[in-house]
Design a binder for these strands. Sequence first.
DNA 1: CTAATTGCTCTAGCGACTAGAGGTTCAAGA
DNA 2: TCTTGAACCTCTAGTCGCTAGAGCAATTAG
Lengths: 137, 137
Amino acid sequence: MYSIGELSRRTGVKVPTIRYYEQMRLMEAPERSDGNQRRYGKSELERLAFIRHARDLGLAIDSIRELIELSGHPDMPCADADRIAKEQLASVRGRIARLRKLERELERIATCCIGETVGDCYVIRALSDHTLCRDEH
Amino acid sequence: MYSIGELSRRTGVKVPTIRYYEQMRLMEAPERSDGNQRRYGKSELERLAFIRHARDLGLAIDSIRELIELSGHPDMPCADADRIAKEQLASVRGRIARLRKLERELERIATCCIGETVGDCYVIRALSDHTLCRDEH
DNA sequence: CTAATTGCTCTAGCGACTAGAGGTTCAAGA
DNA sequence: TCTTGAACCTCTAGTCGCTAGAGCAATTAG
């Protein structure tokens, strides 16, 4: 039996975050001690590790709840889980593409400044005048 | 003189967002019509375009406010503007690196599922068992 | 002149936490 | 057994950058 602090240490999820997950119905309300403190077992540890892993991969709370519900029905077809993972992959790729554009833009802005004062600072000029940009963004 | 709706159309910034920027002191409180409606001039249009461009590049509201204050003092050295741009570039690069890892991970998870039911679904197994991951993340 | 559109202020909500107040319980040492 | 200090409890409010809606006033096109 783990206290919430021990669970936190073992999973790397902060204590208030664990309570937040309970509120969001990602974690079930656990047993309590005589003094009303949360007591967790091994299955809750695994579940929290699952949640943390999924969050690290950028899945939304709602998607994770969906996956948890799915994993409770091992006989169902797994097409839904597959879909969630594929959607997530597509969104990550989109975010990467957008950030790459920003990177190129910022690279140009941040490395071209040879002015000495704000008046001729390339950073500020570039931000003021969109037409200096090479790409759309 | 533009109304807030016209300013919105010309800059692509939504009306409530313009009001929000005013509240956040990115935009100065503009003149008003007799009926208390906001009336903008060309300089406000340019300023909003500046803000929008900076937001598109992922700069935080606070950083933008800093840049605007800087640009009001054209005789100051531009080292601060330079620093803001460089910091932003570093943070964008960090985000890209993190997302690339997620991409690889999700690619593997989303393409390896050959199970038919949730019980042997690779997506759910991979999320449950962190040791299946190749990289740290 | 009327009706549709646009504008105004104010408040509340989003997602995923994080921080703090004010109080209670637990565990270890004396 | 007692004490002390860390960890726990609930509840509320704040973060960021908007977005939505209520309930009203002003503007503008026909």
